[in-house]
């Protein structure tokens, strides 16, 4: 009983459902056929680029505000 309850909670809380994740992975594989490393590299680049670009833009904005 307790195991069933915790399984329900796990299924919901926070977690990507393993079934959904497995399906999503299969779909991406089917669509692109890339190795895992390529996907990690691509998404990783996006994840890293966004904050760096935001930092640069914010720094420029604050510099403009100070100068004005």
């Amino acid at each position: 009983m307790s195991s069933a309850i915790f399984r329900i909670v796990l299924h919901h809380s926070e977690s990507a459902d393993p079934t959904l994740v497995r399906w999503l992975r299969d779909e991406i594989d089917h669509l692109f056929g890339w190795p895992a490393e390529a996907y990690v590299g691509l998404v990783g680049a996006v994840v890293i680029a966004f904050p760096l670009a935001l930092l640069w833009l914010a720094w420029r904005r604050r510099r403009d505000l100070v100068e004005s």
Binding site: V21, R25, P35, Y39, V40
Partner: peptide
């Protein structure tokens, strides 16, 4: 985060 990061983590696990 759910759409992009979860598959990212899944592939990271494979890699």
């Amino acid at each position: 985060g759910g759409i992009l990061l979860v598959p990212f983590v899944a592939y990271l696990l494979i890699a």
